[in-house]
Design a protein around this nucleic acid. Structure first.
Length: 278
DNA sequence: ACCGGAGCCTGTTAGC
DNA sequence: TGCTAACAGGCTCCGG
């Protein structure tokens, strides 16, 4: 679910909420959520650790601990992290028990509780010494300066898969998912069904620019809020207001009026304007 | 190396 | 209203 802009919003929101706080106790209710190490070792290793640094790589949230290890969270489709206030001291007041979709609970020294909740159970959490063991295979970060049109060209060169599938491939480019792939291809005027290797350099430059513009606009709007995504606290993201094609199948293209086409590529719903995108 | 499809999960929505 | 099928911001694994 969350893509680069949503994950970036998560990290920016979590940093002031968690920085300097210490985990007193961990509980894992769905062991498969913990990818590395096993759930028992995870609860043991995370206890007593303090949140020290905050970062993102692709769609992975990187929470650096004072032990030097990194707690890495991938929300996949429906994962969410929420910081819950301490239970009320008044014994008669309503408590806030975790529901059946809450799979990991971290009790903090402030009395607060950081909860990982995930309806579809696709998300994963790692606790590792070496971040690269989890994120080492990812492609370039689209918003870093090193991501030049040439880099995108190299990663698409010779590829026969359609460009939509390649944008979703995290080793080609990190952080782009279904929304921002469709929106970027629309802004670049490129048909998502085209083979990646068939794009000329001028088209690659357009796609490169479109990816950066769309991702930055997504961050600016604090991400897109659909059924299953909202930032950890405060306002919801608003980028869905700016969608040009995503989930607009059958509706008129804002640019030319032709109906937006919905099809399936790489097993994912794909939306494009057949007239504006070639 | 690369590509496409099955599988992982549960909930919501569209269609008969 | 009730059932069923399709769909959902993602990724890994496996066979060709």
């Amino acid at each position: 679910m969350p893509e680069l802009p949503e994950v970036e919003t998560y990290v920016r929101t979590l940093e002031p909420l968690l920085k300097g706080k210490t985990v007193l106790k961990a509980e894992v209710r769905w062991p498969r959520t913990i990818a590395v190490p096993d759930a028992a070792r995870f609860t043991d290793l995370v206890r007593g650790r303090r949140f020290a640094s905050f970062g993102r790589r692709g769609k992975y949230i990187l929470l650096g601990l004072d032990s030097g290890e990194t707690l890495i969270v991938h929300l996949r489709m429906t994962g969410e992290l929420r910081l819950h206030p301490p239970p009320p001291s008044d014994p008669g007041a309503a408590a806030n028990p975790a529901d059946k979709h809450t799979h990991v609970l971290l009790a903090l020294d402030t009395g607060e509780e950081l909860r990982y909740r995930d309806m579809r159970k696709f998300g994963r959490i790692w606790l590792v010494e070496d971040e690269a063991s989890v994120v080492g295979k990812l492609g370039p970060e689209p918003l870093e300066e090193a991501f030049l049109p040439r880099v995108l060209a190299d990663n698409l060169a010779g590829r026969k898969a359609n460009v939509k599938a390649l944008l979703l491939n995290q080793t080609v480019l990190a952080g782009v998912g279904n929304i921002y792939a469709d929106e970027s291809l629309f802004h670049a005027g490129i048909d998502p069904r085209r083979a990646g290797g068939s794009l000329d350099f001028e088209e690659i430059e357009r796609l490169h620019l479109a990816l950066r513009k769309v991702l930055l606009a997504g961050i600016e709007a604090q991400g897109s809020s659909l059924q299953n995504y909202a930032p950890p606290t405060g306002a919801k993201g608003g980028f869905q207001e700016q969608f040009q094609v995503f989930r607009r199948g059958g509706e008129p293209c804002f640019h030319c009026g032709a109906p937006v086409t919905r099809t399936v590529l790489a097993q994912r719903s794909t939306h494009f304007c057949p007239s504006c995108q070639s």
